[in-house]
Every structure is written in C-alpha cells, then in structure tokens.
Amino acid sequence: MVSFKINGETVQARQGWTVLETARQHGVHIPTLCHHEAVEPSGACRLCVVEVVQGKWSKIVISCMYPVAEGIEILTDSPRVKNVRRWILEMLLAECPGSKEIRALAAEYGVSASRFAAHHPDEQCILCGLCVRVCKEVVGVSAISTIGRGVHKKIGSPYQGPAEACVACGSCVTVCPTGAMRARLDAVRGEPKVKLAHGAK
C-alpha cells in the first residue's frame, strides 16, 4: 500500500492506482468530463487537474493518469488548481457554447463568459473521445473514431457514412459527458435494416 496526502488528509492507495481513483475512493470530489471507470483514462479534458507538492516544488498534473507515489501531497482545490480549471472551462465554453453541462460546470467556478471567440454557437462536443474509447474498449467494434486533426478534428464513422460495424448499442450516447453524441448517433448507425415498428408484417 502507498500512503500519501490529499488536501492534508492521509490516504491509502494500492500501487498502480491513479490519484483520481484514490480521491474518489476516499470521497474527495474532482470534476471530470472525459473519465469513465469502464475505459482507460486518456487525459483529454484536463479538468481533473490537481497540484502535486513534493518537498519545495509543486506542479499541475492530471489526476486521472498521475500514478500514486509514497509521500506526495495532492491539493485538489488550491488557488492554482482553480485558476487552471477556470482557464480550461473558459476554453471549453468557447469550443462548445451549446452544451448545458459545460455552462453549468463553468458557473460553478464563476465562469460565465469566455474571452475566446466561439465559432459554432450550437456545438456541444468537447472532442474528449470518450465515445470512441467506449466503442473500442467496451463494445469492441470501433465504429467511430476521431477524424481529421487540429481545428478540423471531429467524431465520426469511417468515410463519414453509416458505419457497418455499429451495433446501435448506444454506449457512446450513454457515456457522452455533454450529450453531443445524441445528435450524431443517427448518422453513425444509419437507417436500421430491420424495422421493428409495431404492426409491421
């Protein structure tokens, strides 16, 4: 067992756990968007940042991937952490102004407007890739993926047509932190081949 401190309280963790897992185990709240217990962490949304203090120096790390170590001290709500989160939320607000969840989360941290230009007022997707990871790791079909890179990156199916591999399980919609996948599922699974409407002959 590894013992270290979260916000001044000593906690125990198994070797190989991440800081986020340990914090959740001990009831310490750390906000996350792209994290889900069912899949490997990817560190995409950066919202789970915490401050690691080791002796005289400290650094900001993402708790969903930072491995626990003996004797470190974690601060989940220090002024530095809050400042970084506010920045992240401001950028998320500009990236997907259409998301109710992001707006609510931003409001929690006192962020109501973004100083960055928002180009797509209805955008909801934060491109965290959680849907892609669920489709690959849990469902095992990889029907969707990220397409393009940089500002052109988006979530979609191969050749942006209906995906043959999609089993229409809806896992991507379930895990999506902002509900953006709801609007995309139809494009991914295409027209159902078997009509299940009542009364069909």
Binding site: S42, G43, V61, I62, M65, P67, T146
Partner: peptide, 10 residues
C-alpha cells in the same frame, strides 16, 4: 495509429 500525443507520467 493517428499520431496524437498522450499525457504520460511514465
């Protein structure tokens, strides 16, 4: 795979 960096502490 797509050449995207991933955060790592290892």
């Amino acid at each position: 795979r797509a050449g995207e960096p991933k955060p790592k502490y290892v």
